[in-house]
């Protein structure tokens, strides 16, 4: 138990380092981009009506002062961290003066909810079916499933998403293809609202699950076809141990360890996949927010979304890391 605590502490330090490096990278990328938020706003204002050049210049100066845009980069960087630790990332520029953090917090539950459900579903179902398919190699249903998974797995998330939109929104319009919930439902802790959310999440979740399922199915099946030749599996079979017991506790249990590592490694990729998926389904999550922010030249909001993404993905990997020694007794926590 003591060893485990030291292990947790070590991983926590790693987590902090990863978050720091990731957010710093996001900061420099957004701040060194040639898009200037001041010019974006001035341009937008100037396009709406005619102003005297003097008025525009005044606006430019006022905005520069307001955004502190003329400070040197390293000062901005230090200021950013000073504010970051108290959870303040500054006002969003396109929804001025709403704090960027507030926008992020509004979008976060949507993305986390969607991703968590999709990942947990695709990982467990994919691994279970993959394990069974690797063990019962002559089962017709599982064989057919393998062929389908092999065909779907290389298709990118967004293509699957478009296909789903086409099928369930156009050819057979039975499911909502856009938004997080129905327009006529008032948000609140009501049955109607929750059902509406679930209803709207079916398609975006399905597009993630379909692809994710194929990936874990194929990975698991390949792993299992190796594990079934291990001595401990052969021996258990020879001893007449019931085959359900062999497949779950001897085969799948052993293959689950590398599959969990695989999941941790794939998390970042899955997250970037969601950004596009959300865009396709007009889902009110981080992905949609990020795309809006980038299009509006809102550096603060871009930075806030990326920081939150770094923290979320790194924390998820941290949790998976903590599970690892519990799943495999041979992993040394010292």
């Amino acid at each position: 138990m003591r060893d485990y605590l030291t292990f947790v502490l070590k991983r926590l330090v790693q987590l902090a380092a990863v978050v720091f490096a990731g957010i710093s990278a996001a900061f420099f990328i957004t701040h060194m981009s040639p898009i200037s938020p001041v010019e974006m706003i001035v341009g937008r204002v100037a396009a709406q009506a005619s102003f005297s050049p003097q008025a525009l210049q005044d606006l430019r100066e006022a905005l520069t002062e307001l955004f502190a845009a003329d400070l040197p980069l390293h000062i901005k960087y230090l200021n950013f961290w000073a504010r970051f630790v108290v959870g303040d990332l500054g006002p969003s520029l396109i929804a001025f003066p709403t704090p960027a953090m507030q926008l992020v917090m509004r979008a976060l539950p949507w993305t986390v909810g969607l991703l968590a459900v999709a990942i947990v579903m695709s990982w467990t179902i994919g691994n279970l079916l993959g394990g069974l398919a690797g063990y019962y190699q002559n089962n017709r249903f599982l064989k057919a499933f393998g062929v389908v998974a092999m065909g779907i797995q290389p298709i990118p998330y967004y293509i699957v998403a478009f296909l789903l939109v086409l099928i369930f929104g156009y050819f057979w319009p039975v499911l909502p293809i856009s938004g997080g919930f129905a327009m006529n439902v008032r948000p609140g802790f009501t049955m109607e609202y929750i059902l509406s959310i679930l209803h709207h999440s079916i398609l975006p979740a399905a597009s993630l699950v379909i692809v994710g399922l194929g990936i874990s199915f194929l990975g698991m099946r390949a792993l299992v076809s190796n594990i079934v030749t291990e001595d401990y599996v052969t021996y258990a079979e020879l001893a007449g141990v019931k085959s359900e017991r062999v497949v779950f506790f001897y085969v799948i249990r052993n293959a689950a360890v590398p599959q969990l590592t695989g999941l941790a490694m794939a998390l970042g990729g899955i997250f970037s996949g969601t950004i596009i998926t959300e865009q396709v389904f007009g889902y009110p999550g981080l992905g949609t927010l990020l795309v809006t922010a980038v299009n509006g030249g809102d550096t603060t909001l871009v930075l806030a979304v990326s920081s939150m993404a770094v923290v979320a993905v790194a924390s998820a990997i941290f949790v998976i890391d903590l599970l690892h020694p519990l799943l495999d007794p041979r992993v040394r926590v010292k």
């Binding site: 401990y232 001897y250 249990r253 052993n254 799943l327």
Partner: peptide, 8 residues
């Protein structure tokens, strides 16, 4: 040596 399930 390898006939016992390593995670059991």
């Amino acid at each position: 040596m390898s006939v016992l399930n390593p995670v059991r």
